[in-house]
Design a protein around this nucleic acid. Structure first.
Lengths: 222, 222
DNA sequence: TGTACATCAGTGAACGCGCGTTCACTGATGTAC
DNA sequence: TGTACATCAGTGAACGCGCGTTCACTGATGTAC
């Protein structure tokens, strides 16, 4: 009830210090960070409104438009940061294994795990309807292709190592993506469904995706 | 330009005849039909507003509330009708084949096809965040379980026929669902991606899902 | 067979909310002279 | 070393839109007497 006599208004959030001339770009970073934090913490894209971001940063909504053309640009930029992180995590996981097949499996495990850890991002990036507007210049799409290309190369290495029969790495990479994406997105959308225990489910999917080709080899078909 | 002098207002859509006493339930059906049509034709859930539905039916928005408690109930009911149709299509497809394994594959093909034919419904039913509100009494969930149970029984028949090794039909059914869902939802969300040709993609996924167990059998493992 | 009345099936207008966004303005900071 | 001025980094208030929903009212239809 008693209003704080200092510079702050009654809201608990302290208003941030105004940036010095030349340091305006700092707010830009803080806005991106706040949007990122809101997205992760609330787990709801709807909670990440311009007002909410401004509130979290400690500035007013119009200040955001000094640094971003519109909300979509802002969200897109946040997603791009996330996506780069996603690709790195997958590559790191893959790098742990020496065997190309095990490496590919590690990618799959990391994919599901990362998706489940950041469901709201996963929704935005992989489960939303495509933006009509940003068809060509969509950086997220370029990055998605980059991450997919990593996957495709991983498949190719399995083919080269003789784990997979020769064939189109592209199609196999698509199928594996569909498998991991199917798991991840269903677990996100239907959390109440009686799924198998996570680890078991992941390994079953990997067995389905990778296993039949292995079986083909293991049993020495002729 | 010239206003029609008859009973209609200037809008092209004729206003519907008022139902006679006792026939009020007719509007209810027309509302469901209109919402269904809008959902299929526009391919956008956002386009299916109360105003749009009222416009399509030829009544006023408040009239909708004479028959539905709120918008969510309306949409849910429309989805239930769709879902019943979905389950029927899958069962019909499965019934075409005599071999349990081929029957299961037919389910998978029909699943993807039906999802792609009604992407907006597919989004709502399988790609949306779960309603917090309707956790227990969610009929759509019950129906989803029913459709899944059909799938699980189909898997069990494959096990019984010796196509699959004994094991938990439930887990395999989950994995197959994840496969077909992964394909369907990615094709819906990323239409611009260079996917394999649809048929090829479906068969590859089915081979991944069903094939490795078949391979296990085909090659006569000991 | 006519009439008063209840009810059923709606209408018209508006509310309230949240959202993204814009407009006119401000006030501190740095700089030329 | 002081001062006028430009600029940078914001603020405060409001707009406009679309949406779901509500409220008070209406007018045709059926029915009891």
């Amino acid at each position: 009830m008693q209003a704080d006599a200092t510079s702050q208004p009654t809201t608990g959030k302290p208003r941030r210090r105004r940036a010095r001339a030349g340091e305006g770009a700092r707010l830009r970073q803080e806005i991106l960070d706040a949007a990122d934090r809101l997205l992760r913490e609330t787990g709801s894209e709807a909670a990440v409104s311009i007002d909410a971001i401004a509130g979290a940063v400690g500035c007013t909504p119009p200040a955001i438009y000094l640094h971003f053309a519109d909300k979509r640009s802002l969200i897109r930029e946040v997603c791009e940061r996330y996506f780069a992180q996603f690709a790195d995590v997958l590559n790191d996981a893959a790098a742990q294994a020496t065997d190309p097949l095990e490496s590919l499996a590690a990618r799959g495990r990391a994919y599901v795990q990362f998706g489940l850890e950041h469901p709201e991002y996963y929704r935005i990036l992989f489960m939303h309807r495509p933006d009509e507007g940003a068809s060509q210049h969509d950086l997220a799409r370029v990055r998605a292709n980059a991450a997919f290309d990593d996957q495709e190369r991983a498949v190719q290495r399995c083919i080269d190592a003789g784990h997979f029969p020769p064939g189109t790495a592209h199609n196999i990479a698509c199928a594996l993506w569909a498998s991991t994406h199917g798991m991840t997105s269903l677990l996100i959308s239907k959390p109440g469904f009686p799924w198998p225990p996570l680890n078991e489910f992941v390994e079953l999917m990997l067995a389905h995706g990778l296993g039949f080709i292995i079986a083909d080899r293991t049993h020495g078909a002729g």
